[in-house]
Design a protein around this nucleic acid. Structure first.
Length: 925
RNA sequence: GCCCUUGUAGCCCAAUGGCAGAGGCGACAGUUUUAGAAACUGUACAGUGCUGGUUCGAGUCCAGCCAAGGGUACCA
């Protein structure tokens, strides 16, 4: 019987569903294994062939682990809140809930075609009120918590209030907003309700503040730092400007050090950890106060190079620095105002695109505290208000930017480091001996740093400090399609909604458009906004990362109405053993999830052995598109083939890859593809074909290089699609999709099928005879190779091992059940449909996916003798067979006596005889 | 600029420091066929981006450079 994958897939799907083959329950006596895919945002465009790559890999792994005896949790869900649905709603008036549901449905249908072993009864969707109830609940817990730095963990806000009552905020080591002033217990007691709440707000882990935010006018919302790339919004590419707004934020900076330290324990790729480290951006240095020359105040700076302080010949403030107004002299006021206006006129993109040296002098001086020199105070856009203290001591001799600034504005430069002992060292290297630097003269840089910090601490003008680049995470979005905040304002003071009233459901609105005033669409619905006792609801919604920061916990216990995850379920599943997803979430999702996990654990809401949610993380590479081009002769409707294009002046145009086969254009289809091309003429190659150019690019609609998995599955079958995706290359590497290679995998599956000699009535015609040594060797070699490959996620070489195996068995004319049946199980994780059909046609009860994985027997693989390559000089000269267990002493005389060997050695003395058992013999002469 | 990853046949990719090739695509030749397709058999094609180093032995380890992809950036 022919290999009919469509019928096979239908039967398998029905069988799996009827028998709940992928249903997961907790089984106490089986070891657990949690395989997780990053859940997708269900976009309207559906899946392209790039999306399932990771899902297929994790599915193979999950199926493998199941066959190996693990109880595997392998769920799927949807990150369903988000901007595209809302923007579609603005355009069409359709409620995002409806389009989202439709898109989820499309995704699930597409996923079903590929044959994943998800337990859909555990599906979660972040926009489901039963789910976001718990997202809101976590927010409330963050709101009701503060970070105790002494204990290095989050605590309930009650303990903070008790401390305030007793001691005010003295003797308190807490993560706190910068602007918080000290107060006593008495002061706390006399504070008004509003003052007390404002004070507490400076300590809460979810807090509201008046902050400079990334405001995107086009989207009408605020964005988090990681949602802004190059001054443009990540979604949509709209300009982003800085704006002061009242915003909710999460105090993730309280966890910076723990997020950094935790990386050490994780089995993640180096680059992933590095990205998180860079994002957190820890730097060690010192803060130092510089007095103003007139004694009217001081300026605090952060520096990583306190050793260079004797070379600080001027100071620079960020243009947004609050002191500027106060210290600017009358004479310089006009210049400073003009400069600030100039800076404001420049967008982030302009600032980054052209880095001009610009600045203005305030007219005021400060005193360098270590050499008592009077130094001018400038302002410049190269100093950022958001980093450190927004002010620097400028050391032009040891910093490139300060140097450029000093040269342009003719400010003094004092060399403070003699690098002559370190040839090739640059300003960035912390190397050299101090000069012109008073008490640290002659010290090496690292010693000078320590000595200077000690000195400024002794002088009481500063201290050693660790600074983090990471900012608190903005948590407000002026959008509709997100989780509403469980917050009600009374007299402008925010109060949490009672936990018993969760979820605060998203109400209907008339329009999804941003209001433009900075308020989100929810503000329009007055019935919802105004609550009974005069309170007003928060009208912002939560950001995309809210729902995705904890979804992996919900899969463990998706229906629990009492808790976000039940104790028993958590105790069994603990955390994710293997997480697979794209690198694009390196600093967003993965950082927030780690933060939430640590927080929930600190507060005792979850109890797990470690405080990291994702032990092993693998990033699948991006599948790129392979675009095809036609070359239009300029000013004509003539198209010239690739090989001849240089003879003309041409414009390359993208052409739909679906009408190109092996780079040869279907010219008729091309003419039909657009009215513009209806009467196109072609200048062809000598053999009469039109050859297209090609390029590897991102897969996207606009490049006409999108390949839909549904079509591939329809044409080649799901198993072929799965195996081909894996065969493309190493999982983690980026690689282009090129459909033409798929024939090889398709042939393999047909050849594998044919081995079973399925008759017209569906019965395999196999022999029960004893297998030969050669057949056993092929089987056991393949088991060993494939098992190892799956374990190290080398699915591409695994597929190829199956190909080798089938080629060998065909050559051996093997039709033995004892050989072929174990292979069906071995192949099951890769080709779940075909193997299910074969397994059952072989007369087995139940699913092939619930049986036991075969184990290889080394005895069948072992050879008695080995052909040793004999290497003399740089090359292999001959091969001689020896028993595998032969030792050097036994082998050496025989080798030297060999005719060919003797000829190569001639009369030269043998300097060395290298014998590597089972590998090689190398004779050095 | 800095950080990470990757450079092997026309193409995609293999190769615990040990004979550069497992597999696939494509090409070519043949068997089969009225022809094509499919299937089968066979053939050709690189010395591993470049320059050094370590080693008995380097595609693999180390240093520098070049190229591509990704990340990040006036971060003091």
């Amino acid at each position: 019987m022919e290999y009919n994958f469509t019928a096979i897939e239908e039967r398998a799907k029905q069988f799996w569903e009827a028998n709940e083959v992928y249903k997961v329950t907790q089984i106490a006596d089986k070891p657990k294994y949690y395989v997780l895919d990053m859940f997708p945002y269900p976009s309207g465009a559906g899946l392209h062939v790039g999306h399932p790559l990771g899902y297929i890999a994790s599915d193979i792994y999950a199926r493998f682990k199941r066959l190996k005896g693990f109880n595997v949790l392998h769920p799927m869900g949807f990150d369903a809140f988000g901007l595209p649905a809302e923007q579609y709603a603005i355009k069409t008036g359709q409620h995002p809930a409806i389009t989202t549901e439709k898109n989820i449905d499309t995704y699930k249908k597409q996923l079903a075609k590929v044959g994943f072993s998800y337990d859909w009864s555990r599906e979660v969707s972040t926009c489901d009120p039963n789910y976001y109830k718990w997202t809101q609940w976590v927010f409330l817990q963050l709101y009701k918590s503060w970070y105790n730095k002494d204990k290095d963990k989050a605590e309930a806000i009650d303990s903070l209030m008790a401390h305030f009552k007793q001691n005010g905020n003295t003797n308190l080591n807490a993560a706190c907003s910068d602007e918080q002033e000290t107060f006593t217990a008495e002061q706390w007691a006399t504070m008004s309700e509003a003052e007390q709440q404002n004070t507490l707000m400076n300590y809460r882990l979810a807090y509201q503040s008046f902050a400079t935010v990334n405001w995107c006018p086009e989207l009408g919302t605020v964005l988090a730092n990681d949602e802004v790339k190059d001054g443009l919004s990540e979604r949509g590419g709209h300009p982003v400007v800085r704006k002061q707004m009242k915003q909710w934020s999460l105090r993730i900076t309280a966890y910076s050090q723990r997020l950094l330290d935790g990386l050490e324990t994780l089995d993640w790729s180096l680059s992933m950890k590095e990205q998180q480290r860079n994002w957190i951006g820890r730097s060690e240095g010192a803060t130092v106060f510089f007095q103003l020359a007139d004694g009217s105040g001081n300026i605090e700076v952060f520096t990583t190079r306190p050793d260079t302080i004797f070379g600080a010949t001027f100071m620079v403030l960020a243009p947004e620095h609050e002191l500027i107004e106060k210290i600017t002299t009358e004479a310089q006021k006009a210049e400073i105002d003009q400069y600030i206006a100039y800076v404001k006129s420049r967008s982030d993109i302009e600032r980054q695109a052209e880095k001009k040296v610009t600045g203005a002098f305030t007219g005021t001086y400060a005193i360098n505290p270590l050499n008592n020199e009077k130094i001018p105070i400038w302002i410049s856009e190269y100093v950022l208000i958001g980093y450190g203290t927004g002010a620097i001591m400028a050391v032009p001799s040891d910093d490139d930017r300060d140097n450029a600034f000093a040269e342009k504005f003719e400010l003094p430069i004092i060399d403070v480091i003699d690098k002559s002992d370190y040839p090739g060292a640059t300003r960035h290297d912390k190397l050299g001996k101090m000069i012109n630097s008073g008490f640290i003269n002659g010290m090496e840089v690292p010693d000078a740093i320590k000595a200077t910090i000690a000195k400024i601490e002794e002088m009481n003008i500063g201290q050693g400090k660790i600074n983090y680049r990471q900012r608190d995470a903005g948590y407000s979005r002026q959008r509709y399609w997100g989780e509403p905040f469980p917050i009600i304002y009374k007299n402008d003071i925010p109060y949490p909604v009672a936990e018993s009233e969760l979820p605060v459901e998203l109400p209907a609105v008339d329009s999804y458009k941003p209001t433009g005033t900075g308020e989100g669409p929810l503000a329009q619905n007055k019935d919802w906004v105004n609550v009974a006792d005069g309170g007003v609801r928060e009208t912002d919604t939560m950001p995309g990362y809210a729902g995705s920061s904890w979804y992996y916990l919900r899969y463990m216990d998706p229906k629990n109405e009492e808790q976000l995850v039940g104790k028993e379920a958590l105790a069994y599943w603990q955390n994710v053993d293997f997480y697979l997803g794209g690198t694009e979430h390196a600093v967003g999702h993965l950082l927030y999830s780690r933060f939430w996990f640590k927080f929930l654990r600190d507060r005792g809401f979850i109890d797990t052995p470690t405080d990291e949610p994702f032990q092993k993380l693998v990033n699948q590479g991006m599948i790129q598109g392979r675009s095809n081009f036609v070359y239009r002769v300029k000013g004509t409707n003539q198209f010239v083939s690739y090989g001849l294009r240089k003879k003309y002046e041409t414009t390359p145009l993208h052409v739909n890859v679906n009408i190109v086969k092996n780079d040869i254009l279907d010219t008729e289809a091309f003419r039909k593809s657009s009215p513009d091309y209806a009467d196109a003429e072609f200048i062809l190659e000598e053999n009469g074909t039109y050859v297209c150019g090609w390029e590897i690019e991102k897969m996207s609609k606009s490049k006409y290089n999108v390949v839909n998995p549904d079509e591939i599955v329809a044409e080649y079958g799901a198993d072929c699609f799965r195996m081909f995706e894996m065969f493309l290359g190493p999982l983690e590497a980026g690689k282009p999709w090129d459909t033409k290679g798929i024939e090889g995998v398709s042939k393999f599956l047909k050849r594998f099928w044919r081995l079973f000699k399925i008759s017209e009535n569906g019965q395999p015609q196999l022999s029960d005879a004893k297998p030969t040594d050669a057949e056993l060797k092929t089987l056991h070699k393949t088991i060993k190779k494939v098992t190892g490959d799956v374990e190290r996620l080398a699915f591409n070489t695994g597929v190829s091992a199956f190909m080798v195996c089938v080629n060998e068995l065909i050559a051996l004319k093997c039709d033995k059940r004892a050989i072929l049946e174990p292979l069906v199980i071995l192949l099951a994780p890769f080709a779940p449909f075909t193997t299910e059909e074969l397994w059952q046609s072989l007369g087995n009860e139940g699913s092939v996916h619930q049986t036991t994985y075969p184990v290889h027997n080394e005895a069948f693989i072992k050879e008695d003798s080995y052909q040793y390559p004999i290497r003399i000089g740089k090359k292999v000269r001959t091969k001689i067979a020896f028993p595998v267990q032969a030792t050097q002493a036994e082998v050496e005389p025989a080798v030297l006596a060999n005719e060919v060997v003797a000829q190569w050695i001639g009369d030269k003395p043998v300097k060395r005889f290298v014998f590597v058992q089972g590998r090689i013999i190398n004779i050095v002469i």
